[in-house]
Every structure is written in C-alpha cells, then in structure tokens.
C-alpha cells in the first residue's frame, strides 16, 4: 500500500525542484514586486506599505507615450521578423538539403557574441560618421545632417536584428515537419506552387509563427538595450523608463507599477492574439504535424 502510494507520488517528488524554483524565483519576487508597487515613501526615509494604487494611475498618465511606443516598436519588429524570417526558414527547411544544421548554426552564430556588443556594433555601423554614412556623405549622396542613430528606424532595426533568430527557429521547426508528400499531393491536386504555399505550407507553419511571435514580440516590447544604444530622446521605450526609475530615480514603487502595467498589457495582447488566431486550431495543427 505504502509502496503504491510512493509510486503514485513519485512524479510530484520529481517535479519538486521545479516547483521550488518557480516559488523562489518567480512567485516570491512577483509578490514582493506587487507589494512594492503599492508602497509610498522615498529611498532616504524608507518605503511603507500604504496600498497606494495611485502609483499605477500616475505611472500610466506619465508614461503612456512610452508604453504605446514600446508596443508599436515591438509590433513592427515582430512583423519585420516574420517578413524576413519566414523566407529564411522556408529556404533552409526546403532547400537546405544536407546543410540544414550548418545553416542553422550560422543563424545562431551571432549569439556567441554578447547582446550588448552586437548592438553596440550596429551603433558603430550606423554612426553619423560611421562606415555607412561617412562615404555616402563624402560622396554627397546624402545631406550632412542625415542620421540614422537616435531614430525609430535604428531602434526597430536593432530589435528586428536581435530577435530574428527567435522567429526563424520555430518557423523552421514547423516547416521541417511538413511531410514532402503533402506538397506532392497538393501539386497532384492541381495546385500551382503559389497555391500550395498558401493552402498547405502557410497553414501548417502557423504553430511555428505563433511561437515565433511570442518569442519576439514580448521581449522586443520590453527591451531597453536597443533604445539605449541605438535610440535617442524621442525613441525611449518603457524598458528604459523602468530602468531609469529604478536605478537612477530610485523610485522603486513606480518602477514596479510600470512593470506590472507592461506585463498586463503584454498578457492581454498575447491572449487577444491567440484568441483571434484560435489557440485550439494551433494546438490541433501542432499535434497533427
């Protein structure tokens, strides 16, 4: 009897480290942050728990521009990642032949260089007197005042660059799982190549696109490194605001409140996205492919 009970509990014992991890590094910090977000006071006199929910209202009123900008930048970067990443994944999956793993390795190669360094090198490349603009300016092709750094283009470009592999990999996995006979069947049933792409490849790649959107949109919207290194005063994202509030202004409650607003916004966005696309269908397809 005891042995059987033990066997029945074994999965829970095995999952225990995972649960502990989640508790210590997720649940407790979340609770602490939630409490922090409703406190008042300052760093010198100390903070006290006053259930001051006004922090949220103030945070939103003061930084709504940055919030919306972050979501917009994240959205544009995600769409660009799909646009660039899908053909790449498609090409590797269907035309990679024996070199698929080498090509995937090349795709991941930049990851061996630090995120910050990679972004900083874009700063060098795009600098006003950098290797791209300098020759163009000397040749008189662009005006001397023209600049890319500190513009939304630079920040969104940086986000797109940095998160592209997170889009390519899941799409590649979804495409790779498409049975080649399905494309032959489609062609046998009078579909042109374009029709096969639209009617078979695209629908079957949706689970990958869905995963890619999650992996790209969420971190891109809350990123602050690209806006810090490539952006200017007009491209501040909410990540930068939170960072400034926390480390420069030392206003922990507002920083915490801002974090929760961001989290809430992203969760709502993601659920709305899953809802429109139909999670059921996606899971169905993922299971079927």
């Amino acid at each position: 009897m005891n042995a059987r009970l033990g066997a029945r509990l074994a999965p829970y014992w095995l999952a225990l480290p995972g649960w502990l991890w989640l508790l210590v590094f997720f649940v407790i910090p979340i609770v602490v942050m939630l409490s922090l977000s409703t406190q008042t006071g300052d760093i010198l006199t100390g903070f006290s728990q006053t259930w001051h929910w006004q922090n949220y209202v103030n945070g939103w009123n003061e930084f709504s521009t940055e919030f919306l900008r972050s979501l917009l930048y994240g959205l544009i970067a995600t769409v660009l990642c799909i646009g660039i990443g899908f053909p790449v994944a498609y090409w590797i999956a269907f035309y990679g032949g024996n070199h698929k793993s080498s090509l995937l390795f090349l795709l991941l190669l930049p990851f061996f260089v630090s995120f910050v360094i990679r972004t900083q090198s874009w700063n060098f490349i795009l600098a006003d007197d950098g290797m791209v603009l300098s020759p163009l300016k000397n040749a008189g092709l662009v005006s001397p005042e023209f600049h890319i750094l500190s513009t939304p283009v630079a920040v969104i470009g940086g986000l797109t660059y940095n998160f592209l592999p997170f889009m390519v990999l899941p799409i590649y996995v979804a495409l790779e799982r498409i049975e080649p006979a399905l494309l032959e069947a489609s062609s046998d049933l009078y579909a042109s190549r374009a029709a096969s792409l639209r009617r078979v490849v695209l629908p079957l790649s949706m689970p990958g696109v869905f995963a890619g959107v999650l992996l790209t949109f969420v971190p891109a919207s809350s990123d602050f490194v690209n806006a810090t290194i490539l952006g200017g005063t007009n491209t501040t994202m909410i990540g930068n605001v939170i960072q400034t509030e926390y480390f420069t202004n030392l206003d922990y409650p507002v920083a915490a409140a801002l974090s929760f607003i961001l989290m809430g916004g992203l969760l709502i966005g993601v659920f709305a996205y899953a809802r429109t696309l139909g999670t059921g269908d996606i899971l169905d397809m993922a299971a079927a492919s």
Binding site: E184, D188, L189, L204
Partner: peptide, 20 residues
C-alpha cells in the same frame, strides 16, 4: 508536364492527407 497539369491523380503510400 508538371503533376498539376496532368489528368491523373495519385493515392500516396502515406496517404498524404492535409492534416489542417
């Protein structure tokens, strides 16, 4: 002539039904 322009149809060994 590519398969989509041929008036023959195939039943594949794996059936190749569209899962979606």
């Amino acid at each position: 002539v590519p398969p989509n322009r041929r008036d023959v149809n195939m039943v594949f060994q794996s059936y190749a039904l569209f899962p979606h």
